[in-house]
């Protein structure tokens, strides 16, 4: 096994161009598991953990650009205000050891429908930045992930960063697992309120081949808010609307039965998470007005 350890992004991209078969490794919390399970034996490994450019994040007019190598622990510590939904999702990932190593770049690289980093990115319509020696392209995350554990990365490309809007309202992330920590999502739900645009953005995780946006449910709630003038009055949404939102989110789920849970349970739980998350986010919005 050849082990490449470039010291800069430039050299990393050159290495990838020269060795398109090389498998990138960031935190290694997915890749090493695969190797231990004997599910793949890369000829060449490209270690990105020493590439400084990947471990940086910066503000870009209303957006945040986060390097693919920023760990969950840092997202929690440094981006809790700018990207609260992603920070909440990061808190649900694995254990302290995993959060110290694991990265959202790796989560994107794996493209698992259960990846906890993905629903917040989907909800906020993040763009994934893909770089090669030939240049950089930006792809909406929902186009980047093409199926379960499949994505649009080309052999000569690396994920260099993702870019998403700074939060302008409350965000939530909730995840159901059978154990109270260190668990792969049975299903999950990410939500972002964008009061300035009158938008509600939501995404289901781990209940379909990819994360799933819920446009009908979102439009429904937006309608409820608009109709009641709730964005302005910060009045209550009402139980019926919350429930209806949960049901419409349920309708978008496309789960399967597996060892972690039945499809029926996932559908049920998604509805509960959606209803509760919207309630919490809305409560926070209302309190924000006090």
């Amino acid at each position: 096994m050849e082990f490449l350890r470039p010291p800069s992004l430039h050299e990393a991209l050159e290495a990838k161009a020269a060795h398109p078969e090389a498998v990138p490794i960031s935190g290694g919390t997915d890749l090493m598991v695969e190797i231990n399970f004997d599910r793949g034996r890369p000829e060449t490994v490209l270690d990105l953990s020493r590439v400084p450019e990947l471990a940086e994040w910066e503000r870009e007019n209303g957006h945040v650009r986060v390097g693919a190598g920023v760990t969950y622990e840092r997202i929690i510590a440094e981006l809790g205000e700018a990207l609260p939904g992603l920070a909440m999702a990061s808190r649900t990932v694995g254990s302290p050891q995993i959060r110290n190593r694991g990265t959202v770049g790796g989560n994107l690289g794996t493209s698992s429908p259960a990846g906890d980093g993905l629903p917040p990115l989907y909800a906020s319509e993040a763009e994934v930045e893909l770089s090669s020696t030939g240049g950089t392209r930006r792809v909406p995350v929902s186009e980047f992930v093409t199926g379960p554990k499949r994505n649009a990365l080309r052999p000569d490309e690396l994920i260099s960063a993702f870019r998403m809007p700074r939060a302008t309202g409350p965000q939530q992330y909730a995840k159901v697992g059978t154990r109270n920590a260190m668990v792969i999502a049975v299903c999950s739900f990410g939500l972002a309120l964008c009061p300035e645009r009158g938008r509600v953005e939501a995404c289901i995780g781990s209940a379909g081949p990819t994360p799933i946006r819920t446009p009908e449910a979102e439009r429904f709630v937006e309608g409820v808010m608009e109709e009641g003038g709730l964005w302005e009055t910060r009045g209550p949404i009402g139980d019926a609307a919350l429930r209806r939102f949960g049901e419409m989110v349920q309708a978008a789920a496309r789960p399967i039965d597996d060892v972690r849970g039945t499809a029926a349970y996932r559908v049920h739980a998604i509805g509960v998470l959606a209803r509760r998350s919207l309630g919490w986010a809305w409560d926070e919005y209302r309190r924000g007005g006090e």
């Binding site: 049901e247 309708a251 039965d257 039945t262 499809a263 029926a264 049920h268």
Partner: peptide, 12 residues
Amino acid sequence: IADGPPRRRPQP
């Protein structure tokens, strides 16, 4: 919810 194959999904 019984373990086993999914039942009909709840409709909105």
